[in-house]
């Protein structure tokens, strides 16, 4: 059974059909990279997976849990799905450590000391062991995004969602965040990454998905996807970004 299975997913905001019949499957330990022009519905797909946005039709199953089943509670879903945002969305009134421990303490019910241990280990893993007591405003963008990754990992998720995790960063510091993401991929974390980093997709992805105007135009392993794109729309998009 795949880790994530979306079939026939539809979503409209008012008259605006943002997702039209999306079918997507991600195997355990795979890295799925979603690329496509802005406004094509990439963020919406991620938001549907953890129910930040309710879908209008179709089904989504994560690790055996049905997103459309009302008996499945939000927290059951969200503790299994970590999310990293383009704008980091760190809590500005908390230190890095407090950002990372909030979920484990309040959702998983960990004791403060255990949550602190976990936070220390994860902050060390993203290279920020010495920044545990810093506020977000004292950290650079790259450091903030790495804290945000640690915060999501602290829940022990089955799937990690990355929504343009490096788009808000200056080009010279995207590398430090991409390095953390590559490390996670090497450890066989199941990841779905919306990204504009073609180099990252080529190197790390199991599958590259190209979206345009609410539909999946083409989906292939990176070799085939970049080497021999099939659809005209994919070719024209790739010719602009590569």
């Amino acid at each position: 059974m795949p880790m994530l299975e979306m079939s026939g997913v539809r979503k409209a905001f008012g008259q605006n059909e943002v997702l039209k019949d999306i079918n997507l499957s991600v195997e355990r330990g795979d890295v799925c990279c979603i690329i496509g022009p802005s406004g094509s519905g990439k963020s919406t797909i991620l938001r549907c997976i953890n129910r930040l946005v309710p879908i209008d039709g179709g089904t989504i199953v994560i690790d055996g849990l049905s997103v459309t089943d009302p008996a499945v509670r939000d927290v059951d879903l969200r503790r299994r799905v970590g999310m990293v945002f383009q704008q980091f969305n760190l809590f500005p009134h908390m230190t890095a450590r407090e950002n990372v421990t909030l979920g484990p303490r309040k959702v998983l019910g960990l004791a403060q000391a255990d949550a602190d241990d976990r936070a220390r280990a994860l902050l060390a893993k993203v290279g920020l062991a010495d920044k545990a007591e810093s506020r977000p405003s004292q950290l650079s963008g790259g450091q903030q995004q790495r804290v945000a990754i640690a915060r999501a990992l602290a829940m022990g998720p089955k799937v990690m969602l990355f929504d343009e995790a490096t788009s808000a960063l200056d080009p010279e510091i995207t590398g430090e965040v991409l390095a953390v993401m590559k490390q996670l991929a090497l450890e066989h974390t199941t990841m779905i990454c919306v990204t504009h980093e073609m180099g990252f997709a080529r190197e790390v992805a199991s599958n590259v998905v190209f979206m345009d105007a609410g539909v999946i135009v083409e989906s292939n392993p990176p070799g085939a996807f970049f080497g021999a794109p099939q659809m005209e729309r994919t070719k024209s998009f790739l010719s602009k970004v590569l």
Binding site: L77, R78, R79, M83, L90, F91, L102, G103, K106, V107
Partner: peptide
Amino acid sequence: EGQREAAAALGLSRLDQLRYVLVPQ
């Protein structure tokens, strides 16, 4: 809005989102 979303994505309940993330800010 991103603050509420980030808190919700962590699995915090509506009340906990308010209590730990939204109200302090």
